[in-house]
Design a protein around this nucleic acid. Structure first.
Lengths: 357, 357
DNA sequence: CTGAAAGCGCTAACAA
DNA sequence: TTGTTAGCGCTTTCAG
């Protein structure tokens, strides 16, 4: 990357520095700094003078210089597997807005769910001296890795494991899946397919556990062929669902827990001519346009995405605030925030068809 | 924002600086710098020694220090009205990935389509010395404003006007709307409603113009009550569409040009009991899940979002590269890139019903 | 070709 | 309370 100095526009006023302010206020550099930051004793008179001068000159401190000096940047990094995933997109918006209110900037990056890519980005961000990191799930989870970087940096995990002492925000996917499954069981289904995102990630793991728990409650044995944890790629779930629907003893319900999974399953039902909800019941996750407007409207496990983002930002802010103590930070950081899901009933679930197909 | 110095972990190795490299290589600081950056004459021997030392120590330059010295940051800012808009989300992903390959970081921000907010963020980014800016449409467009900041910074506009000399990437919404409208006219529709995003923004303006042009071609007079340019809020388009559909002389087709507009119109058709495409034909924009999977699948004006992002990133990179000359940059920058849309025909359009409702 | 030295803008010790 | 000074890590003159 080129690092040539930017030639300044000839007739552009040079940047006003704290020096200029000090001179204009008739005080020394140090006093100006202390006044501006209220970081030390300053006489009332000096304070006034400095503030007036600063305003008059429209002085704004140079964050870069501050960074170099303090080791702090006023920037936080956010890393998720896919920025374009609408779920993340909404969370990010919430994070950004909360952070911005505090004067922080946010740099974002995509891990594409790859450990290597994640480490690369974390390293990059760290070198840029971000004050904190928000990390979404990524490939196989390594709580140890998070613990390691959190010794040096404020880190908050989103839907991702983070050792005993780690702080983060978790959605209760266990309960979400469990409730959805119970709901279908109550309707009379026993052959319920679970299609979820990668089981190596926390959300996938929790969902599978929740599903198993619900079945166990009712004494229904788990048919392992009905549990599909793939990488939430639409085409994959399409072919999976297709296979499932064409099998002799096909499932009568699908729980689709991944942003793009619903699409795949929907296409499969359409292609095999199964009607929703008469032939097959559907529950999905992530309350977007599609589940709301599809006919029939799809019953959804939903949760407050804005709350996830806001909570993550706030935890991070707090962690940065108490950053001094990071070195000796063995004391447990605040309990991870847990958000609960809500089952929004719509029209996509019905009792299973009486006759087997 | 707190600017306290970060206390370093007691037993954490101090950062490796270029000094350490120089010492290890047995050369002076300056020589090490020149060797690392190939920015001046260095003997072969020195070069080798420095590179070896750098590798051995795992030296990585401090971007903050580089920034302070060079006035360059290796960061670019991206501002759109709404990060959570799936269209932007995908563009952003493309921008990020292109930028990352070049070693740049990306800070993002939300303007919420407000001029004030945009100026605030631009200012913030500028102070942080971003090397470039990518700006999406925002409120009433002010080409003059862009020209102004572009004197100091590399700027590329996305779907936004930018004076004569400005560089940017534009989607040909004019042609998109025009083609869609022609298609409906060919089907026999004459009462075609156009619901689009804010006419103060380039995409909205172009779409309206394209719509008018298509009607004019066929000698169909424009009924102004059928042209609704709102702020692409779903509820607004819902009530608009509801009113339109309930009117005496209702439109027989809708062109829905805004991410959330289709949802609103779909709800309205459902509520009024109009069937698609028998009673009313639909064309929308932005090829997401909903138009693809809805029954009937919705005919869509689509374009390559990744290409938009990649092009924006590349133009910006080029502009930054030739940044020296910005001061005397009256020479026209490269022509704005134009991307064209494609009409994806599906099942949501049919000839208008013979009888008026 | 190389080394020494200045300084980007700021904060935090320290001395007065 | 204040002013002076020493850097943060780096690039870039300017002499040698």
């Amino acid at each position: 990357m080129s690092r040539r100095p930017r030639t300044s526009h000839p007739d552009m006023p040079a940047r006003v520095t704290i020096r200029d302010v000090a001179r204009a206020a008739g005080v020394s550099l140090g006093t100006a700094s202390r006044a501006l930051n209220r970081s030390g004793p300053v006489s009332e008179a000096a304070l006034q003078a400095v503030e007036r001068a600063a305003k008059a000159l429209a002085y704004a401190p140079d964050p870069i210089a501050q960074s170099l000096r303090t080791g702090t940047s006023g920037v936080v990094g956010l890393l998720v597997s896919d920025l374009a995933n609408p779920l993340y997109a909404r969370i990010i918006t919430a994070v950004e807005s909360r952070l911005q209110r505090e004067g922080y900037a946010m740099v974002v990056g995509n891990t594409h769910n790859s450990k290597a890519q994640e480490e690369l980005m974390v390293d990059l961000f760290r070198r840029r001296r971000v004050d904190g990191l928000i990390l979404g799930p990524c490939e196989v989870e390594r709580a140890a890795y998070l613990e390691e970087i959190s010794r040096e940096l404020a880190v908050v995990a989103m839907d991702r494991d983070f050792g005993a002492s780690g702080s983060g925000v978790h959605v209760d996917h266990f309960r979400g899946a469990c409730e959805a499954c119970r709901y279908l069981l109550d309707l009379g289904h026993t052959r319920i397919a679970l299609m979820t995102s990668d089981a190596a990630l926390r959300p996938g793991r929790e969902r599978i556990d929740g599903y198993r728990a619900a079945l166990a409650e009712r004494g229904v044995a788990v048919d392992e062929t009905l549990v599909r944890a793939s990488r939430s790629a639409m085409d994959l779930s399409f072919s999976d669902a297709l296979a499932l629907l064409s099998a002799r003893n096909r499932p009568t319900a699908f729980i689709c827990l991944g942003t793009r999974i619903l699409s795949g399953v929907l296409q499969a039902t359409r292609q095999t001519g199964h009607r929703v909800p008469d032939d097959v019941s559907l529950v999905c996750v992530g309350d977007g346009d599609l589940p709301q407007l599809y006919s029939p409207a799809i019953t959804t496990i939903s949760w407050d995405l804005e709350a996830v983002g806001t909570a993550a930002a706030e935890i991070l802010l707090r962690a940065i605030g108490s950053g001094e103590d990071r070195a000796k930070a063995t004391e447990p950081r605040g309990q991870p925030v847990r958000l609960t899901t809500q089952l929004v009933m719509r029209e996509s679930c019905a009792p299973p068809p009486a006759s087997k197909t």
